[in-house]
Computed example of a mutant assay.
Amino acid sequence: MHARLILFFLLLIAPWRLVSAHDDSLLARGKYLMESVVACANCHATPDSNREGAFTNNLGGGRVFDEPPFRAVAPNITPDAQTGIGRWTDAQIGKAIRDGVRPDGSIIGPPMPIGFYRNISDADLAAIIVYLRARPPVHHVVEASTYHVPLPPNYGAPMEHVAATSTRDTVHYGEYLANIGHCMECHTPRGDHGQLITAHLGAGGQVFNGAWGTSVSRNLTPDESGLKRWTDAQIAKAIRGESREGMHYKPPMAYAWYRNIKDSDMRALIAYLRSLKPQPFAGQR
């Protein structure tokens, strides 16, 4: 009888233990992604009222991207019920991230890289949502973004299911990481209407102005003007924020987060970059 009671008790708590372990695993994965390759806080930061030009990486939003086509303001994505996403369901958060559609049906515009986030696997999307739910709520009212160009009616059919990418296929997994890290959003030239010229994927040349001055995205393809003569160690060092000469690169690249990319993922990213079609640098020299 005593053994049966113990077994009954274990059966009662086993589902809870499994769910708890599952949630812990998702949170760990979400923390890794958000604090490394995905780096949402690089944009969804809050201006620091005590330091001009500085930001608090709390996901409370408020960072302004003032460009000719738009004045976009990063929203508050903390679980604050009034000013953040605290009242959104998991499905609504997932749809916003992967489909670019808010709960009210409105379309999320640039610079949110929805075209790349559509590649986020179901498992990693769930992990990111668990991480967002676990963040401290920040009560921060953020102004609405304004666009001077029409937004698309949608970014394609709703993403119902995205399977996980096997880490055994190093190049394919590296492409997956580059997609969810939206590397090519900045390292691909744009046309006259702001569209990415995917025929020159990775050729760089975009110009970014900010408090740091001017940055130009580098050619990431294995061309002479790109990474052909770079070693893997030099590429890894650059992604983490330091040039071959030992100088620190300027923003807007999310070096503070990319330095947390684990070595195995870095090797996959580099393998993918080396697989790109060589392209001449797309910007002015």
Score class of each variant (00 low, 15 high):
43 C>E: 10
122 D>A: 10
112 M>R: 03
189 P>H: 07
28 A>R: 14
209 N>L: 07
76 N>H: 09
154 N>V: 05
189 P>L: 02
203 A>Q: 08
258 Y>L: 09
38 V>A: 11
263 D>M: 05
85 I>A: 03
242 E>L: 05
74 A>S: 15
284 Q>Y: 13
245 E>Q: 11
74 A>K: 05
141 V>F: 08
92 Q>D: 01
47 P>C: 00
104 D>Y: 06
102 R>V: 01
43 C>W: 12
98 R>L: 11
143 E>C: 00
141 V>I: 07
262 K>C: 11
84 G>W: 01
227 L>K: 06
52 E>N: 13
10 L>Y: 10
48 D>C: 04
13 I>D: 14
129 I>W: 06
262 K>V: 15
161 H>I: 10
271 A>R: 08
183 C>V: 07
139 H>Q: 02
265 D>C: 12
258 Y>P: 00
144 A>G: 00
202 G>I: 06
5 L>T: 05
185 E>L: 06
248 H>F: 02
280 P>F: 13
42 N>E: 12
191 G>A: 10
199 A>N: 04
39 A>N: 13
219 N>Q: 08
100 G>H: 05
233 A>G: 10
224 E>F: 09
67 E>R: 11
4 R>K: 15
108 I>Y: 04
143 E>K: 12
81 A>Q: 09
206 Q>L: 08
121 S>Q: 08
63 R>V: 08
43 C>F: 13
231 T>C: 13
139 H>V: 07
148 H>M: 10
157 A>W: 00
191 G>C: 05
38 V>E: 05
35 E>W: 00
203 A>G: 08
7 L>R: 14
192 D>R: 09
159 M>F: 10
209 N>W: 00
5 L>F: 13
275 S>C: 09
66 D>E: 11
172 H>D: 10
210 G>Y: 01
265 D>V: 12
46 T>C: 00
92 Q>N: 03
62 G>V: 08
233 A>F: 07
207 V>L: 05
20 S>E: 11
264 S>C: 01
106 S>R: 06
141 V>H: 09
116 F>A: 11
143 E>S: 13
47 P>K: 00
2 H>V: 15
101 V>E: 04
37 V>H: 05
218 R>E: 10
227 L>D: 01
